[in-house]
Amino acid sequence: MARSDVQLMLDVKAGDELSFELLLHRYRTPLVHFLYRMVRDQAAAEDLAQEVFLRVYRARGQYEPSAKFTTWMFRIATNLALNAKRDSRHRQLEVSIDQSDETSEGRAPSVEVADRQPGIESELIARDRSAMIRRAIEALPEKQRAAVLLHKYQEMGYDEIAKILQCSESALKSLLFRAYETLRVQLAPLLQGGETPATSQGREK
């Protein structure tokens, strides 16, 4: 039977390096995906995720199983991501003027190819749609953004998200409501139904 996160962490504390490897394997993908959506840059996300694992490892000696392991880990991740975001906002101010989303995304390489090949065309539409979703989430206030990512993409419970974001469950529900309300307005063109390539796997009936 698989050992719980807490048990693995206690084993790491006792000096078992293999248990740390197991935690790494268990959480690297959700953690990097979360951080990618927080900072929108894969290299930076992986670097931050490494930092999270390093901090988890460093804190092993003081680890006490008072909080859920994922709560603790994602709180470290959220704080690191928000700090990184605040730092890079100052640094990237000049860069962002000539490197807008469209160019950095590298979409629509050539129009005639898109016309001739329907596969590429639908891929470009899908890429446009996810760029739009990304921008809408990116535009949310930082706490709302973190709440949406943890709720929607990490599928965490309200109690855990509330602990990570250090607010009450009731406040979290309002936070999520306001975030989804903003997204509903921003992404209205995508909600009209019809040509949604990946929507079918979603929750709508």
């Binding site: 690297r28 990097v32 990618y36 694992f53 990304r134 989430i137 929750r203």
Partner: peptide, 28 residues
């Protein structure tokens, strides 16, 4: 909101780079 949940699924995160574990091990 129900439709939105499905739409948000379209934003996929890229896969991890192969050297990720090794990088963590080096730092640890």
């Amino acid at each position: 909101f129900r439709l939105l949940s499905g739409v948000l699924d379209e934003w996929q995160a890229p896969p991890l780079s192969p050297g990720f574990d090794a990088a963590v091990r080096v730092r640890v």
